[in-house]
């Protein structure tokens, strides 16, 4: 983009940029490209047992084609996991991002008190590990400790809501801050004309601020979708406190169980490729839809 110095730099720099990028590229190759390739490879393999499976060479790794994928796609438990995550994700995404947007707009309102105190308080859960957040809420959900009376928060009816609450509690503040800092970057003059025309604070928020925030809302949504699909920490940490959460509650928990408990690396690899594909399709699909929509609205 800044081209005047192009020739001079390219001529002088030579191998230097590649040397400077070598650490990142080495890490990329070892901890990103190689693992992805290896997962791909494993997902296409299986163990072939000959005879009784005893003795040397009785268990051989062979090419399996797409059998592991067929099994993953036909797996009812995995689908049930997707459905659970879909319900949980719908709750988390709408409430967390909705609250984040409301709080950001409120912080940006003209006559707000306690803005600093509430902003810091709402952002605070960002500094709390998911495990610790789940432990705190988990204990608060226990009938023996709960101040909310004798509800079965971890029973089959409420467990999705209880889990979503932990994620909403943990994620709202960060998203609020991202949206709020974007709002702060808007020059105040944008609102002056509307104010002179007698527009209310609410009208300014709805008609000017939210449209200005659309790109950051899209970005936070995409990142939240990717995180939600991979939900693992909250259900895993809540499991010891209740028997309504199975070891395959979410797709990622099933991958963990297949790989490390039942020892079936191959189907775990195929399942994780399916999770990756779904999250890529969802985030790109969402970006596309929103882009078209935004363009349609804009013109």
């Amino acid at each position: 983009m800044r081209s005047p110095t192009k020739g001079a730099r390219a001529g002088r720099a030579g191998a230097v940029p590649y040397l400077f990028l070598a650490p990142a590229m080495a890490l990329f190759a070892l901890f990103m490209a190689l693992p992805i390739g290896y997962t791909c490879y494993l997902s296409l393999r299986r163990i072939k047992v000959s005879g009784l499976g005893l003795g040397k060479g009785a268990r051989k790794e062979v090419f399996a084609g797409l059998a592991n994928y067929a099994a993953a796609i036909g797996d009812g438990e995995l689908w049930a996991g997707w459905l659970r995550v879909l319900g949980y994700g719908a709750l988390v995404l709408t409430l967390m991002l909705g609250l984040a947007l409301v709080f950001a707009l409120m912080l940006d309102a003209t006559h707000v008190r306690l803005a600093r105190f509430t902003r810091i308080s709402i952002f605070l859960p960002y500094a709390v590990p998911g495990v610790a957040a789940t432990l705190m809420w988990g204990f608060l959900y226990l009938p023996s400790l709960s101040p909310f009376g004798d509800h079965r928060f971890l029973g089959a009816d409420l467990v999705t809501f209880s889990m979503a609450n932990v994620a909403i509690w943990g994620g709202t503040g960060f998203n609020m801050l991202v949206l709020y800092t974007n709002l702060r970057a808007v020059p105040r003059e944008y609102y002056e004309a509307a104010k002179i025309d007698g527009a209310s604070e609410l009208a300014i928020a709805l008609r000017i601020k939210i449209p200005l925030l659309v790109p950051s809302i899209i970005l936070t949504t995409v990142f939240s979708v990717i995180a939600t699909i991979q939900v693992f920490t909250e259900p895993t940490t809540l499991r010891p406190l209740t028997n309504t959460i199975s070891s395959t509650w979410s797709p990622l928990m099933k991958v963990y169980r297949d790989a490390f408990v039942t020892g079936d690396l191959y189907s775990a690899a195929a399942t994780s490729m399916v999770i990756a594909a779904i999250s890529l399709v969802l985030s790109f699909g969402f970006l596309r839809i929103v882009k078209n929509h935004a363009f349609g609205e804009g013109r």
Partner: peptide, 13 residues
């Protein structure tokens, strides 16, 4: 890499 879910990485890692 931003879009690569950690799940495809953790097990092979």
């Amino acid at each position: 890499g931003i879009l690569v879910p950690s799940v495809v990485l953790a097990i092979p890692q």
